[in-house]
């Protein structure tokens, strides 16, 4: 059996996915990125490969594609593909009915429209500022002195929303601290934070041609409060993907690796 790999060396997390010849996901790893993307990718690949008896190392993969900001630093990669193309393909593989994606990663937000074959039809990217990305949520969770997962659920029980006016991560953190100091309910402040990010996603979703449904990918897709806020603000259904949404870039890269590996074997 041959195996094909995708490694998404992201700014915050490094993800690795391995598929077999049929395209079935057989191994995956998500780990915190280090400052050196080569080391991050190497560690994630080693960990993923170790779960498969047939493989001794990443170089035994029949084809490997790097993606993410460190895509050209992935060891043993045969080539690299942008994360925009890979997220589209990853989502297409797990749910071909999805036509629009919001990829909310560690440091940017992308709206992607997917064609019928999983390729990119159109995309838009907000990369000017970290507000509204994973880094923003990490800063907010830090301000609330709670783990990210706990913070992501905090807004779900809020009865009101306290608007957050600051557009900058640093200033928003100060605003949150002031509101907490004033004794405002934590869940309502959290709801305000989720709402502000959802509004930032609105433009990207429109550019991704989202009409009645959209899928979230990237680490922030696991943020329950954000999902609820996006459904509220965008007035569209957020599709639940059957596979970890944070893995979509790596999975798309692995699928491209499979297609390219099989094609080159035939040639």
């Amino acid at each position: 059996m041959k195996y094909y790999g995708g490694c998404d060396a992201g700014s915050t997390y490094t993800k690795c996915a391995i598929v077999d010849e049929t395209g079935k996901l057989v191994a995956s790893v998500t780990s915190r990125s280090r400052i050196n993307p080569v080391l991050s990718a190497q560690a994630a690949l080693d960990e993923a490969v170790a779960t498969l008896d047939d493989l001794k190392g990443a170089k035994d993969l029949a084809y490997l594609i790097g993606t993410g900001y460190g895509r050209n630093k992935v060891p043993f990669a045969d080539e690299n593909i942008s994360e925009i193309s890979c997220h589209a393909m990853g989502v297409h593989v797990v749910d071909p009915s999805v036509k629009s994606i919001l990829d909310i990663g560690g440091q940017d937000v992308k709206g992607i429209a997917i064609d019928a074959d999983g390729t990119v039809l159109n995309f838009a990217m907000n990369d000017k500022c970290s507000a509204g990305t994973g880094r923003f949520f990490e800063a907010m969770a830090h301000a609330f002195e709670m783990p990210l997962d706990e913070f992501s659920k905090l807004s779900l029980k809020a009865k009101n929303v306290i608007p957050i006016t600051a557009q900058c991560t640093v200033f928003a953190e100060s605003e949150v601290i002031s509101l907490v100091g004033e004794g405002k309910p934590m869940d309502e402040i959290a709801a305000g934070i989720q709402l502000s990010v959802a509004k930032r996603c609105f433009v990207m979703a429109k550019k991704a041609a989202a009409t009645d449904s959209i899928a979230l990918t990237g680490g922030c897709a696991k943020n329950h409060g954000l999902k609820q806020a996006i459904e509220r603000v965008l007035k569209i259904k957020v599709v639940d993907l059957p596979v970890d949404p944070q893995l979509m870039g790596a999975l798309g890269a692995a699928e491209y690796a499979r297609q390219k590996g099989l094609a080159s074997a035939k040639a």
């Binding site: 593909i81 942008s82 994360e83 925009i84 193309s85 390729t119 990119v120 039809l121 995309f123 990369d127």
Partner: peptide
């Protein structure tokens, strides 16, 4: 970021 945009454009 610009590299990513251009590369995605090229791929499309």
């Amino acid at each position: 970021q610009l590299r990513t945009r251009v590369q995605a454009f090229v791929e499309s």
